[in-house]
Design a protein around this nucleic acid. Structure first.
Lengths: 207, 207
DNA sequence: TCGTTTTCTGACCATATGGTCAGGATTACG
DNA sequence: CGTAATCCTGACCATATGGTCAGAAAACGA
């Protein structure tokens, strides 16, 4: 993601800090209200900076959103990238599930930001989805396919296996309110989810 | 959902038709842009009516949204309501999965409207979630628990089993863009999902 | 047909919102 | 220090948006 243009002068300490503060506030607000639902005033409020000051650091509201999404993409795909063709098939998948669930637990706002964007048809992301994402998934799906053909995991359609991992792990972050409303207090959704998903995927993958 | 107030005079033919047109347009727009992202002008445009005319039939933008959500709730819960304690355990659950997936396929906009609302913390729905929804889920979870205790299905936490059904079926509607982007053309996501989810849940539930 | 009720609209309003700008305050640094 | 660069702000602007209203146009009923 290095952009061209001449002489990118390095960020000053203040720039570094304020850009960070702003992105953090933007994440908070965007993930809660969506892009259109978020206002610069809200973000400024959360960041503790004035609105014109936000626009001193970012050319527009959209620029903040884009920056968040592109940074996010990497974090989000890292666990899948880590799927090792040399490792033990079932354990590799289980590791992926576990890491993905940890992301949901640790970064629910990021998960919701992403979900929001996809829900709205991903206007600012279709390209990335059809490019970077599809390539990575295809690559890993081929590995899964290989394992299935070798009888090392059950013969399930690899793309949908991956979708199921996304769906099940992200559900706990994206639908948090619903999950908690239904479970009531005195529950740790993520702890319970970990055990459940472990069972689910081991049963599914058992050859 | 009968509200009190005196003398509710029956809707005229025109009212019937126009309210329907408006709700249909509102669904289209809300499900695509979320509540705040949707504008009355857009809805009016889609409905083919003037903005003031929308407000002749509904007191406010919010009223349209509320009406959609409360109507939706019933449709959405119907399949779970149909889970029959007297039926064959595995087949009952599989029927639920199938019906839920059909809802996603047939009513993706409704699914996204709902998802949008939950994502934003369900400001207009927490009550329903903690009441109606929780009660229904608790009731059905008890049935599942009974089946598990009787060894008729595997011993999995019933609430999370239900969550997994929601997550997996709704994923195909809510994340449609992503699913299609990753699969590429020449795929019928729902057809493939049906087979995959069938396998997944049969394996999970096998005692 | 004619009066009454229902339906619909153009014009309008108040507020919210993304964004600009001229200039003041701070900081970096020779 | 002094000054140049960086940082920050109050005031302001144009547009978008939810909503109102007086009255015109249809539809209805006798």
């Amino acid at each position: 993601m290095s952009d061209g243009q001449p002489a990118e002068r390095p960020l000053t300490r203040i720039q570094q800090k304020n850009r960070q503060t702003i992105l953090e506030a933007a994440l908070e607000v965007f993930s809660q209200h969506g892009f259109r639902g978020a206002t610069l005033d809200q973000i400024a409020e959360v960041a503790g900076l004035s609105k014109p000051n936000l626009l001193y650091y970012f050319p527009s509201k959209e620029a903040m959103h884009v920056e968040l999404l592109s940074t996010l993409m990497d974090t989000w795909l890292a666990p899948l990238r880590a799927l090792d063709p040399e490792g033990d098939p079932v354990e590799e998948v289980m590791d992926y599930v576990r890491r993905k669930l940890e992301l949901s637990r640790g970064f629910p706002r990021e998960s919701r930001l992403f979900a929001n964007e996809i829900l709205q048809g991903a206007p600012r992301m279709v390209a990335a989805l059809e490019g970077e994402l599809k390539d990575l998934v295809d690559e890993k799906a081929a590995i899964l396919r290989g394992w299935a053909d070798a009888g090392r995991i059950a013969d399930v359609p690899p793309h949908h296996l991956i979708f199921s991992i996304w769906a099940l792990t992200q559900h706990y972050a994206d639908f948090d309110v619903q999950v908690r409303a239904v479970l009531g207090p005195d529950h740790d959704p993520y702890a319970e989810a970990q055990g459940f998903l472990d069972t689910l995927f081991r049963k599914l993958l058992a050859p």
